[in-house]
């Protein structure tokens, strides 16, 4: 299904020139390949830019918009310390559909649910987003099982589909339109769009195949969570969890945090740091009571939050399907297999 949007194209060999042109507009940050390693950072040479591939290890928007440690208030100074920054624009280049799903979750939490977070709003303004379709999904990818496709459909200024000889550019905003009009592009022809459609169908099929037998579930997980909170599978599946919090740290949709107070050089400060719901003391109360004392309860809570409460509160699954949690897990726990086990325990009982 093609939507009515403006789609243009450039020859693929022009990518370097296009990046160089973008750099004239404002600094470009993106997925780069250096010494065969992929990372995210400032693009120094146009030819180190990566368009296709899959998402990188680091969740791109997380640290940018929600830093691991941040001063959120300097108090008793009479100043508000927020919402005053004049944003200097930057381009984020090459992010994938699952990165954008992370962004969507953060938008819902920090921007759309009241009260909005002034620091988030400031930073959110800073970025133009040029995303791209995936071309090589990983064995841990399951994006198309959690409401998105392996190609971006929303939240970008410009989205790129790299085909063999051309790159298609889909416009998603005024700025995106400015780019395709100012930079010499051609209008995509029906046959180009047809090629994109085919490419995307194959891509989605690839992600489906990766998950064949691993993740046989169709949605909705919310119901599964609600019905199967007491499933014995939670206990057995969390057996190898060491509560390191790695999955939450690497997760592009996790947003739990902790505030603490500090005496700065001259003033008192409130600092916000990432926090992890997998830690034993996360929900512990002063008297020693703890609604999620057991590891299994915390493990299950993470799933319930993403797939049930996220749906209740924000109308979405708060999971991007990027599979980073699978990749990072010390106990080799695979979210897809956990769901499978939980679902099977239902059919068995």
């Amino acid at each position: 299904m093609e939507r009515k949007t403006l789609v243009c194209k450039i020859p693929r060999k022009e990518l370097g020139e296009f990046i160089a042109w973008l750099e004239e507009e404002c600094p470009v940050y993106g997925i780069r390949k250096r010494d065969d390693k992929l990372s995210f950072g400032k693009i120094e040479k146009p030819d180190e830019v990566v368009v296709g591939g899959a998402r990188i290890t680091q969740p791109v928007f997380k640290s940018l918009l929600f830093p691991p440690r941040e001063k959120v208030a300097t108090y008793f100074t009479g100043e508000s310390n927020a919402g005053e920054k004049e944003a200097e624009k930057k381009i984020i280049f090459g992010v994938k559909s699952c990165d954008l799903k992370g962004l969507l979750v953060y938008d819902k939490v920090f921007r759309d649910s009241s009260p909005a977070d002034p620091f988030y709003l400031d930073r959110r303004e800073e970025y133009y987003i040029i995303s791209s379709d995936c071309t090589a999904p990983l064995s841990t990818c399951f994006c198309s099982f959690v409401e998105i496709n392996p190609y971006p459909e929303t939240l970008f200024d410009l989205n790129l589909t790299p085909l063999e000889d051309i790159i298609l550019l889909e416009v998603g905003s005024k700025w995106g339109e400015f780019v395709v009009k100012k930079y010499p592009t051609y209008l995509a022809q029906p046959e180009d769009l047809e090629r994109r459609k085919k490419f995307r169908e194959d891509l989605t099929e690839e992600v489906r195949k990766i998950n064949e037998g691993i993740f046989p579930l169709s949605r909705p997980y919310a119901n599964l969570m609600r019905l199967e909170l007491e499933s014995p599978a939670w206990e057995s599946e969390s057996e190898f969890c060491v509560a390191c919090g790695g999955c939450t740290a690497i997760c592009p949709t996790c947003y739990c945090y902790l505030l603490y107070d500090e005496k700065g050089k001259e003033n008192y400060e409130k600092i916000r740091i990432w926090d992890y719901c997998q830690y034993p003391s996360f929900a512990q109360e002063a008297g020693g009571a703890n609604p999620r004392r057991k590891l299994t309860e915390r493990f299950r809570h993470r799933y319930a939050h993403k797939f049930d409460y996220g749906m209740v509160r924000n109308g979405i699954y708060e999971c991007s399907g990027c599979g980073r949690c699978i990749e990072v897990c010390a106990g080799k726990i695979d979210m897809r297999k956990v769901f499978k086990k939980v679902a099977e325990s239902r059919t068995e009982s």
């Binding site: 649910s113 977070d117 945090y257 902790l258 505030l259 926090d275 996360f282 929900a283 939050h305």
Partner: peptide, 19 residues
Amino acid sequence: MEKNMSCGLGKCGHCMMGP
């Protein structure tokens, strides 16, 4: 309901009880 709290804003997750 007394729960562990941090932000007070419905974001940080500490006080979560079900949804």
